[in-house]
Design a protein around this nucleic acid. Structure first.
Length: 211
DNA sequence: AATTTTGTCAACCGCGGAATT
DNA sequence: GAATTCCGCGGTTGACAAAAT
């Protein structure tokens, strides 16, 4: 599928956004709403690619963003959702009001991955690290890159298969915001993990849309 | 104090898929 | 049905700051 570039690169700014650019973008979206990202830069008088504007708005300028540290509950929720959904950051973000997929992805790669490894849990499979494997592969490229900057003798963990019976016909259900407190992780009978919410019900992953 | 290493996170890139022509 | 356009996503990069040497 031949695709033209999303914008004319010769006349677009790149890199960090200036305050003035931010203000232009905010003001344009306030008066015209989100969307039509391709034509937005010209309409807003910005020398930016539409994708760049979208990213800036979604990840940084949106008024409903909750900035600041992740709470312990949010940590747990991210871990549990990741065990179900894998690197579906946008789906995970959909369950964390005020958080963006980019923010969660970064947080995962910089904090949670390490936290799980320290606990002896493989962040890719969410299972105890039980074997050493030098065959390569295995997520968290950014973190891998960082850690590989230093000495090279990292231990890689075996990639165990995920629960083969997991039904991945997923769809989104109501936000879990109010349920975050009492998430518990229990072992399922195939050895994997699933979410137990409060004492009474589970996330039905058949209702979590994979899009 | 200078240099190197490591951590963090905003932003970019390229792809897939839905929508449109 | 094929080609094109646009949007959204996930992976990756690079700049900067902090910590270590």
């Amino acid at each position: 599928m031949g695709r033209s570039p999303c914008c004319e690169k010769a006349h677009t700014n790149k890199g960090a956004w200036t305050k003035e650019e931010d203000e232009r973008l905010i003001s344009h979206i306030r008066s015209h709403g989100e969307g039509a990202w391709r034509s937005l830069p010209q309409a807003a008088g910005l020398l930016r690619c539409g994708k760049s504007c979208r990213l800036r708005w979604i990840n940084y300028l949106r008024p409903d963003l909750k900035r600041g540290n992740f709470t312990h509950d949010e940590d747990d929720l991210i871990i549990n959702l990741h065990s179900l959904l894998g690197n579906k950051w946008s789906l995970i973000a959909g369950r964390l009001p005020g958080r963006t997929d980019n923010e969660i992805k970064n947080y995962w790669n910089t904090h949670i991955r390490r936290k799980l490894l320290n606990r002896g849990i493989d962040p890719a499979t969410h299972r105890p690290i039980s074997a050493v494997d030098f065959s390569g592969g295995g997520g968290g490229a950014a973190a891998e890159k960082r850690s590989s900057r230093g000495k090279g003798d990292r231990v890689k963990v075996a990639r165990l298969p995920r629960c083969p019976d997991l039904n991945l016909e997923l769809c989104i259900s109501a936000p879990l915001e109010e349920m975050q407190h009492d998430l518990l992780v229990e072992e399922s009978n195939c050895g994997g993990e699933f979410l137990r919410l409060g004492s009474s019900f589970l996330i039905d992953y058949r209702r979590l849309e994979m899009k």
